[in-house]
Simulated scan of single mutants.
Amino acid sequence: MTAGIGRVLVVGAGWIARRVHLPYLARMRASGALGELLVADRDPAHAQAAAREFDARVHTGPLEEAGASIVLVATPPGSHPALVLRALKADAQVLVEKPLALTTGEAAAIWRASVESGLGVYPLYTSRHRPEAAVLRDAVAELGDVRQVRAVWMRRTGVPVTDGGRAAGVLWDLGSHLADLALHLADWHTVTGTATALHQHPAPHGRATIAAWQAVTAPAGTASAVPQWNGVSATAALAPSSPTDPIRQLHLEASWAAPRAARDSVRIDVEAEKGSAHWRTVLGWSPDRAVAPAPAAWTVRDGRRQVLVDAQPRDAHNEYTAQLDAALAALTTPACRAEAAGHLRAACASTALLHAMDTALSGTAQPFTTAV
Rank of each mutant, 00 (worst) to 15 (best):
292 A>W: 05
353 L>G: 03
290 A>Q: 03
346 A>S: 11
54 F>P: 02
50 A>F: 08
41 D>C: 08
160 P>C: 11
195 A>D: 06
79 S>E: 15
93 Q>C: 00
133 A>L: 06
179 A>M: 06
368 F>Q: 04
195 A>L: 05
293 P>M: 00
263 R>S: 09
53 E>R: 15
38 L>G: 00
23 P>K: 04
35 G>W: 13
299 T>A: 04
79 S>F: 09
152 V>H: 13
103 T>R: 14
308 L>S: 01
173 D>R: 13
173 D>S: 15
308 L>E: 02
61 G>C: 03
368 F>V: 02
121 V>N: 03
126 T>W: 07
202 P>F: 12
20 V>S: 09
364 T>F: 15
163 D>Y: 14
135 V>M: 07
32 G>P: 08
41 D>I: 04
38 L>M: 03
231 G>P: 05
49 A>C: 07
199 H>I: 04
372 V>H: 10
305 R>T: 07
225 A>Y: 06
329 A>L: 12
255 S>C: 07
290 A>M: 03
218 A>C: 08
103 T>K: 11
37 L>E: 01
187 D>P: 15
117 S>L: 00
112 R>L: 04
353 L>R: 02
120 G>S: 07
147 R>C: 01
196 T>Q: 11
237 A>L: 07
189 H>G: 12
134 A>W: 08
168 A>H: 14
317 H>Q: 13
367 P>K: 03
366 Q>E: 13
69 S>I: 00
151 A>S: 10
287 P>L: 03
33 A>P: 03
39 V>D: 06
300 V>P: 10
292 A>S: 07
205 H>T: 10
53 E>K: 08
254 A>V: 02
346 A>D: 05
188 W>E: 14
141 A>T: 09
247 I>W: 02
109 A>E: 11
98 K>W: 00
47 A>H: 04
357 M>S: 05
259 P>N: 14
329 A>T: 06
142 E>W: 07
276 S>G: 10
330 A>I: 02
14 G>C: 10
207 R>A: 08
351 T>Q: 00
46 H>I: 06
